[in-house]
Computed example of a mutant assay.
Amino acid sequence: MPLKSKRPRIVPLEPPFDAETGAVLDELGPPLQLFRVWARRPDLARGVASWGRYYFSRQSALSVRQRELVIDRTTALCGAGYEWGVHVAAFAGKAGFDAEQVRSLAGGSPADDCWGPGDRAVLTAVDELHATSDLSDEAWADLVAAAGEDGALDLLLVCGWYHAISFTVRALRLPLEPGTSCPD
C-alpha cells in the first residue's frame, strides 16, 4: 500500500487551535491527521463524530474483534495503509489478533488456517462486498450465523463507511501516523 506522494493534498490543521476547532477535535478523539483535516469543516467533523460514537460504541451489534476484522480487511483491500496502520496499532491487541492474523488481514485470505469459522464468515462477507457490492446467499447465511442479523446489518454499514474512509485517506495522501506501519 505505498503512498503516491509524501505530501498531503489538504494539510491537516496544526496547533494552536481556535476554540471551535479544539472542541471538534475533542469530540473526534486523538488529533490524528485525518481528524485535523475534517476539523477544517467543523460541521462535517461533528457529523463524523456523531456517526462514529454510535457505531463504535457499546451499541454496535459487532464485537470489537468482528468490527476490527471488518475495518482492517476493508482498509487493506482498499490499499488505505494510513487507516490500516492506525487501526492495527490501536486495536489489534484489543481484538486478540496475533501476528499471523494481522498478516492475513493485510494480504491473505479468509481461508487461511489462522481463522476460525466465525472470523472466516466475517472476512468472506467483507471480501465479497468489496468485490461485488453484494453478498451471496451462502455468505449472508454464514455471516448471520456468526454475528446475528443486527451484526450483519452493522457489518454492511461499517464496511461501507470504511470504504469511504479509505477513499478519503488515499486521495488526501496522508502520511502514516507516528507508531504505525503499512502492510507491504
Rank of each mutant, 00 (worst) to 15 (best):
Phe167Cys: 09
Leu155Thr: 08
Arg46Met: 05
Val48Phe: 11
Asp154Asn: 12
Leu25Ile: 06
Pro110Trp: 09
Arg73Met: 09
Ala111Thr: 11
Ser166Leu: 09
Glu177Ser: 15
Gly79Ile: 05
Leu157Cys: 11
Asp26Tyr: 00
Ala147Leu: 03
Phe35Ser: 14
Gln66Val: 00
Glu149Ala: 13
Asp98Cys: 09
Gly116Ser: 00
Arg170Trp: 00
Gly29Tyr: 11
Glu128Gln: 14
His163Tyr: 15
Pro183Trp: 09
Glu177Leu: 13
Ala111Asp: 15
Val64Cys: 03
Trp140Gln: 05
Gly79Cys: 08
Gln59Lys: 13
Gly160His: 11
Lys4Glu: 03
Ala89Gln: 12
Phe167Leu: 15
Ser109Glu: 14
Ala99Phe: 07
Ser5Pro: 01
His130Gln: 14
Val70Asp: 10
Ser109Met: 07
Leu77Met: 13
Leu155Gly: 09
Tyr55Thr: 01
Ser5Cys: 06
Pro12Gln: 01
Asp142Met: 02
Ala49Thr: 11
Gly160Trp: 15
Glu128His: 12
Leu143Tyr: 07
Arg67Ser: 10
Arg41Asn: 13
Cys78Arg: 14
Leu69Trp: 03
Ala39Tyr: 12
Cys182Gln: 07
Ser136Glu: 03
Glu27Arg: 09
Phe35Gly: 12
Phe17Cys: 00
Ala76Cys: 08
Pro178Asn: 10
Val144Trp: 08
Gln33Lys: 15
Glu27Tyr: 03
Gly29Val: 08
Pro178Phe: 07
Ser104Cys: 05
Glu27Lys: 04
Leu156Thr: 14
Met1Pro: 03
Ala19Lys: 12
Trp38Met: 13
Leu143His: 04
Ala19Thr: 13
Phe97His: 11
Pro15Trp: 01
Pro2Tyr: 00
Trp38Phe: 15
Gly85Ala: 06
Gly79Phe: 10
Ile165Glu: 13
Cys114Arg: 03
Leu3Pro: 00
Leu3Phe: 03
Phe35Trp: 14
Pro30Arg: 15
Glu149Pro: 05
Leu77Asn: 08
